[in-house]
């Protein structure tokens, strides 16, 4: 049991990083801190996928030599890493930088409107703006 736990240390660190990112997204009040937490969360998932592709016993990068010229040789699968998770995660990195860019643009607009990036101050400003209207409707 203990060997099983220790042998999977990459997955344990992935879970720890995921929880750090989740805490930053839920527990921090500053919006930039929430965005940093989202980045940590995304990279932790990429770490999980890359860890899936690793093989023990001297498997290396999948660069095949001697293919395409003079016939095909059979590939020994045990000598190369699994490249499928790597290719999936290339897309995930580009998507993560796109979401970060859109989120930062929205954040600049929020700062221009409310003058702050703290979540509680923004909520207080919104409540203060909505309160006179509610009073008018009640009377």
């Amino acid at each position: 049991m203990l060997e099983y736990v220790i042998a999977k240390y990459n997955y344990w660190v992935y879970v720890i990083l995921m929880m750090i990112g989740l805490y930053a997204m839920m527990g921090k009040r500053n919006l930039v801190k929430k965005l940093i937490g989202m980045n940590i969360f995304q990279t932790s998932i990429i770490l999980f996928y890359v860890s899936i592709g690793v093989k023990k016993g001297g498997a290396t990068v999948p660069i095949l030599e001697g293919h395409g010229h003079g016939g095909h040789q059979a590939v020994d699968v045990a000598t190369i890493l699994n490249p499928l998770p790597h290719v999936l995660m290339l897309t995930a990195i580009v998507v993560s930088i796109a979401t970060t860019g859109v989120a930062l643009a929205a954040l600049i607009l929020i700062y221009r409107r409310y003058g702050t990036l703290e979540e509680d101050e923004i909520i207080a400003a919104r409540r203060a703006a909505a309160a006179p209207k509610a009073k008018d409707q009640a009377s």
Binding site: I46, V54, T60, H86, M89, L90, I93, V94, I97
Partner: peptide, 19 residues
């Protein structure tokens, strides 16, 4: 170090650089 070189240089340029 884990053998994912393509992911590594995409992360170095896009994630660490542009981000």
């Amino acid at each position: 170090e884990m053998g994912a070189v393509d992911v590594a240089f995409t992360e170095a340029s896009v994630g660490a650089g542009i981000g």
